[in-house]
């Protein structure tokens, strides 16, 4: 599927497409609308967005913004839905603001794993916002043409878009890359090595310090943060991954030495939305509390179940085989129950 939205730039007219209520985008012209594409799952790490939402509504005057914008003008859309497919954003989180003419005013597309940057949303809004910054008499200028030819009404919608974006479950946004401070160049590239890692079936080419542990390559360089750092010395098991199908500690593996091996991390265990049986059993048996050691526990447990020596182990054999994964919350009895359930599956 081509990504139509990625090709669209502010100022372009958005092609027609179906909304879930049976209407079409063109039929909606005459008033600005917001299209927000998001997964329906909930992510509590977005709570800070709600906080920004609260601050935004204070700064922009919630009464003004909300009273003028009817809720039906913004559309919270499933990112697996028809319009998402039509616009080429299926599976991606995206937010589009269309003005009265159906022209794209603001868009943001967030790759899986990316996150909102609060400062960027504020910066993006500031850019849309008319001068002066303080005490704008917004209500008095309902048809006034503002910065960039944007109508007062569209601006209010932009505010609402941001608010919606922040309040909706799992909707996150990144502002344009230009808003980022670019990191200063690293002054010592000479020591870096080209390293190619095969992770979850995908090849990644990196330039790494030879000292980089596989764990740090995953977490810091590739932002695959499901693999956890608990001790960094092979004494807790939180960093467990599979190397060629066997459980191994990524903290004691130099990334450069993991080349040529099939690396599986917790992010690669489920098949799409379908959990691995061990993952499902962990939820069912409440086999974790804080959740920090959990990816390592699950990687060990799934390897244990794939291994002929340990597959059919009794409770006491599970105890021994899983002892390399410390759980300070001590969900151990529930982990045993979860593994036994997965053994039966």
């Amino acid at each position: 599927m081509h990504n139509l939205v990625s090709a669209l730039q502010p100022g372009d007219t958005v092609p027609n497409g179906p909304l879930p209520d049976g209407s079409t985008l063109f039929e909606r012209r005459g008033r600005p609308i917001i299209l927000a594409f998001a997964p329906t799952e909930w992510d509590p790490a977005q709570a800070h967005q709600s906080a920004i939402f609260a601050r935004l509504s204070q700064e922009f005057g919630s009464g003004v913004a909300f009273a003028e914008a009817a809720p039906e003008a913004w559309h919270s859309l499933d990112y697996r839905g028809e319009l998402a497919i039509h616009l080429g954003v299926a599976g991606q989180r995206a937010l589009l603001l269309l003005d009265e003419e159906g022209v794209l005013r603001w868009k943001t597309v967030v790759e899986p794993g990316q996150d909102i940057r609060p400062g960027q949303v504020l910066a993006a809004l500031q850019a849309l916002r008319p001068e002066p910054l303080d005490a704008p008499d917004l209500a008095a200028a309902s048809t006034e043409v503002l910065t960039g030819g944007m109508s007062r009404r569209t601006f209010v919608m932009a505010t609402l878009a941001a608010a919606a974006l922040l309040a909706l479950p799992s909707v996150v946004a990144a502002a344009p890359e230009t808003a980022l401070p670019s990191p200063p160049p690293t002054d010592n590239r000479s020591a870096m090595l080209p390293v190619e890692l095969n992770i979850n079936g995908k090849s990644h080419r990196l330039q790494l310090d030879p000292r980089t542990a596989l764990l740090d390559a995953l977490r810091e360089n590739l932002h695959l943060t499901g693999t956890k750092k608990g001790c960094d010395h092979g004494q807790c098991g939180a960093c467990t991954v599979h190397l060629d199908g066997h459980s191994a500690l990524s903290c004691l593996t130099l990334a450069v030495m993991a080349q040529g091996k099939a690396i599986t991390t917790i992010e690669g265990l489920a098949k799409g939305d379908t959990l691995h049986p061990v993952q499902a059993a962990f939820i069912k048996h409440d086999a974790f509390q804080c959740g920090y050691c959990t990816p390592g526990q699950i990687m060990s447990a799934s390897a244990l179940l794939a291994d002929q020596h340990t597959r059919h182990g009794s409770a006491v054999e599970i105890r021994e085989a899983m002892s390399g994964n410390l759980c300070r919350c001590a969900a151990y009895p529930n982990i045993i129950a979860a593994i036994q359930e997965a053994q039966r599956a």
């Binding site: 799952e41 909930w42 992510d43 509590p44 790490a45 990316q114 996150d115 940057r117 980022l180 401070p181 670019s182 990191p183 977490r219 932002h223 695959l224 943060t225 499901g226 693999t227 956890k228 750092k229 991390t265 917790i266 992010e267 265990l269 489920a270 959990l275 993952q279 499902a280 962990f282 939820i283 069912k284 409440d286 974790f288 959740g291 920090y292 959990t294 990816p295 699950i298």
Partner: peptide, 25 residues
């Protein structure tokens, strides 16, 4: 009730402090 953050935790998707990806970190 099963933990509502359970799916995130078993998939490695729950974000802990050291895991925020800030530009220029």
């Amino acid at each position: 009730l099963d933990r509502v953050d359970g799916r995130l935790k078993v998939m490695g998707g729950a974000r802990y402090t050291a895991e925020w990806d800030l530009p220029g970190l």
